[in-house]
Design a protein around this nucleic acid. Structure first.
Lengths: 195, 195
DNA sequence: TCGACTTTTTCGTGTTACGGTAAATAACGA
DNA sequence: TCGTTATTTACCGTAACACGAAAAAGTCGA
C-alpha cells in the first residue's frame, strides 16, 4: 500500500541506486516486504516524477552507468507527512490459514508437508533475526537513531517464533485428525488448473 | 492472491448468497483477510464462469431475490487441488514497521499516538478471539472437522497478543527516545498531498 | 407519510501490487 | 566465447484494493 514510502524510508539511510535498493530492501524492510527490482525501478521513476527523489547519473567505466537516487527535501517532507497519518493494521492473509479453515474438504498429507516446510522456514528466519540482533545490538539497546531497527528485529523475531511454534501445534493437532483421513487420490483431470 | 479459493473455502460450510458471504467472511476468514462486497460479488461471478460455483435464484417476497451459490464438484476439486500445493509465507507489510525503520526522519508524536491506537486495537482483537475460543471450544479441543477453525483462532489470538505486547514495548522504547525529539511543526504547504 | 435503513446485486474506474519475460550495455573470469 | 555480475528499462498480464454509485424492494421509527 505504500511501496513508494517504503522506498523513501530506505533512502533516508543513504542515497542509492535502484540496483542497490533492490538488494538492500531484502536485508532490511524486505524482511517483511517483498519487492522485486522491476517494482522498485517503476516506483523510483514515479517518485522522481513527483519530485520526491532525484536521480544523479554516475558515469562508471567498467559497468553501465548508474543512477543514484537521493531523497529530496520534498520527499523527506512527504515521508514525514505520510508517517504522521494513522496506520491501518495489516491483514495476515496467509494461504495456510484458508486451507486450515477448509480442513475437512482438503487432503491433509500435503497440508502436513506444507506445515513442516513452513515451520522450518519460520524457524530459520527466527534464528536469523536472533543472530542479527545479537550482532547489531548485543546490549539489547540501541542508539536513538537505531531504536526503530531494533524494534523491527524484535517484532520479526517474535513473529517468526510465534508462527513456528504454532506450526508445531498445528502439526500435533493434525496428527490427531489424520487417523480418520479421507485418503482419496487427487484428480488432475477433467478441468483445467486455474486459480 | 487467492480470494477465489478463500471464497470456495467459505462455501464448503454451506451454500450462501454473496450478501451472506460478505457478512460471513468478516466473521471467519475475514479475521485475517479483508474483502468488501464488490470484491466478493465479482469473484463469485468469475467462479461461476469457471464452473466452480453454481448460483440458484431464490425468489423472495419481502426482499429482492437472492442468488444462493453452491460449491460444484468442480469447485470442490479445484479447492482440494489448490490446497495441495505448497503455500508461500505471507509477508507482514505493516506501515508501522516502515515508519519505525525511518524513525529518525519522522515525528514521534503521531507515531506514539498511532502505536497506542494499534495497541488497543490488537488487544481488542485478542480478547475477542479469546471470547470466541472460550465459547466455541471450552474444552480446548475440537471435533476433527473443526480442528482447523480452532487452530485459526489460536493463531489469531497469539498474533494479536504478540503484536499488542510489542506495541507496549515499542512505546517504552519511544519514551526513551522522545527526550531528544526533533519537534518541528509539519509542513502541509508547497507540495501536494499525494502518496 | 416521509425519510432512513436493510437486503441484494451490479457496474464502473482507477491505482497499486505482483508476476514473468526480455532486452541493452559492458566488464570480468573461465 | 560463453556465462556471470552489474545496471537499467520495457511490456505484458492478472489480482487486489479503494471509491463511488445505483437500482429495487421492503421495514421501521419519527
Amino acid at each position: 500500500m505504500a511501496l513508494g514510502d517504503a522506498i523513501l524510508a530506505c533512502l533516508t539511510e543513504c542515497p542509492m541506486t535502484g540496483y542497490e535498493l533492490a538488494k538492500t530492501f531484502d536485508a532490511s524492510i524486505g524482511f517483511f516486504w517483498k519487492a522485486d527490482h522491476q517494482q522498485i525501478y517503476r516506483e523510483l521513476s514515479r517518485l522522481r516524477d513527483r519530485g520526491h527523489v532525484q536521480g544523479r547519473e554516475v558515469v562508471q567505466s567498467g559497468k553501465p552507468n548508474k543512477l543514484v537516487y537521493t531523497l529530496t527535501p520534498e520527499g523527506r517532507a512527504a515521508l514525514r507527512h505520510w508517517a504522521a497519518r494513522p496506520s491501518s493494521p495489516a491483514s495476515m492473509k496467509d494461504d495456510l490459514l484458508v486451507r486450515l479453515y477448509a480442513l475437512d474438504s482438503v487432503d491433509i498429507e500435503p497440508l502436513r508437508d506444507d506445515l513442516m516446510a513452513r515451520m522450518e522456514h519460520h524457524r530459520d528466519r527466527a534464528s536469523r533475526y536472533e543472530r542479527i540482533l545479537n550482532k547489531r545490538f548485543p546490549q539489547g539497546n540501541a542508539a536513538p537513531a537505531d531504536t526503530g531497527k531494533l524494534l523491527l528485529l524484535r517484532m520479526g523475531l517474535r513473529h517468526e517464533s510465534m508462527v513456528a511454534e504454532w506450526c508445531e501445534e498445528a502439526l500435533e493437532a493434525l496428527s490427531a485428525v489424520s487417523s480418520r483421513t479421507n485418503v482419496v487420490p487427487i484428480q488432475v483431470s477433467q478441468h483445467e488448473d486455474n486459480s
